[in-house]
Design a protein around this nucleic acid. Sequence first.
DNA 1: CAATTTACTTCACAGCGTATAGTTTCTTCA
DNA 2: TGAAGAAACTATACGCTGTGAAGTAAATTG
Lengths: 238, 238
Amino acid sequence: MTVTGSKGRRARLRAETTAEIKKVALALMASGGPDAITLRAIAREMGMTANAIYGYFATRDDLVTTLINDVYTALADAVDAAWEAAPATDPAIRITAWATAFRTWAVVNPQGFRLIYGDPVPGYHAPEGGPAPDAARRVCTGLTALAAAAWPHTQHLYEDSAFGWSDFDQGLLDKVRPAFPDLPPAAVALALRIWGHLHGLVSLEVYGHMHTQTTNPEKLFEEELVQLVQMLGVPRRS
Amino acid sequence: MTVTGSKGRRARLRAETTAEIKKVALALMASGGPDAITLRAIAREMGMTANAIYGYFATRDDLVTTLINDVYTALADAVDAAWEAAPATDPAIRITAWATAFRTWAVVNPQGFRLIYGDPVPGYHAPEGGPAPDAARRVCTGLTALAAAAWPHTQHLYEDSAFGWSDFDQGLLDKVRPAFPDLPPAAVALALRIWGHLHGLVSLEVYGHMHTQTTNPEKLFEEELVQLVQMLGVPRRS
DNA sequence: CAATTTACTTCACAGCGTATAGTTTCTTCA
DNA sequence: TGAAGAAACTATACGCTGTGAAGTAAATTG
């Protein structure tokens, strides 16, 4: 170990270069969309040859996969932080905070949102199981926390739910059930449905489809949240 | 006029070639995704040179824009047909039919869905106002019909809505208000929110994000519809 | 100091959109 | 019928992309 805390100069330089490649790639994405992530453009920006990048990422898809992971993790961090920052005693505020953070992140990082949820980049094919199932599951777990917070008030609506544990992916359940042992399958289904609601509105907005219809997508989203909280039966000020 | 009903052999051949280009492009899209729509591939398939296509479409984006229009129109046709086919006397069934047709179309034509709602194709930039605002508005009008059918039962939930006509795009209102003169702004907002709900669930499914969470996205969507009808307060069998 | 590993460059290839120029074929009109 | 013109299409070329193979220079290691 050295003063830099690394395992030698070589490894440190390598890590720095890797970080710079990702940084430049993200900058290109932010300015020109996911399509702008080309090896040659990154190399140009770094004063290198495109092929030099192959020393760090086996292929362009590998790089993109890494980026998706990073960006997805940033999103998960953002919504988790908003959740934690809101008072645990007031589910309505917490839920609203989570969802607002979700939309805000997407609107601020539209290219990141596209990278995660869209066709990321020309010809990109995700590796088996998707590029970021982990971050995806973090988001889903956050959503389940949301549903769990509301569940005492809302479960009466789902008493004849047909959902069983077998309707869900085992990987998701492995994360969700330990965290919320008392939650029934119907609540997980509710969480996924809420995800769909929020994702739909945000996605239409980010991809510019809402813009052709409403001049105020933010207002629409806020209305959605009001109705969501109301639908969940969560008391508005506790 | 001739027996073929065309304006001359030349024009007919031209129309046929145009149609073939689009047909081949759609076939390529269906098999390889929107990315597979390349002029050279189309030309190869047709036994032509890539440049020959420039006689029919000024640029590749032009072709893609036309395709989006066609595909979007097909989607609009599908949901409209489902709406019309369902009994006008039962809003619950009509709404369910519309939404089911929406998801079914998307699941059957995932590449078409991506073409319409995703980053269509590498480097594609939609012309001003989007490529298919017309078809988009047809879908929105259908959604508004949905909201209108439910409105008598559900308006009591939105009596203190803050929405005004200025919150919506004029082009949308021009189509919607004549068709539903008595509908308030709050109902249009509801329609857009419902669009978001459905789009989100379908979009997550089509893009493979649901697959990592649930083994049964169809069931989830059906649950959504049950809850949607319930939320709207529409009587279930009239 | 010599051997090896690592980082990077150079060259090459195929595929992409598309601009320009040239060629062939069809339509039209005197 | 034959010449003029338009239309359809091809050929060539340029710059962009990802990526493979081979070569080079520097750092590390024995």
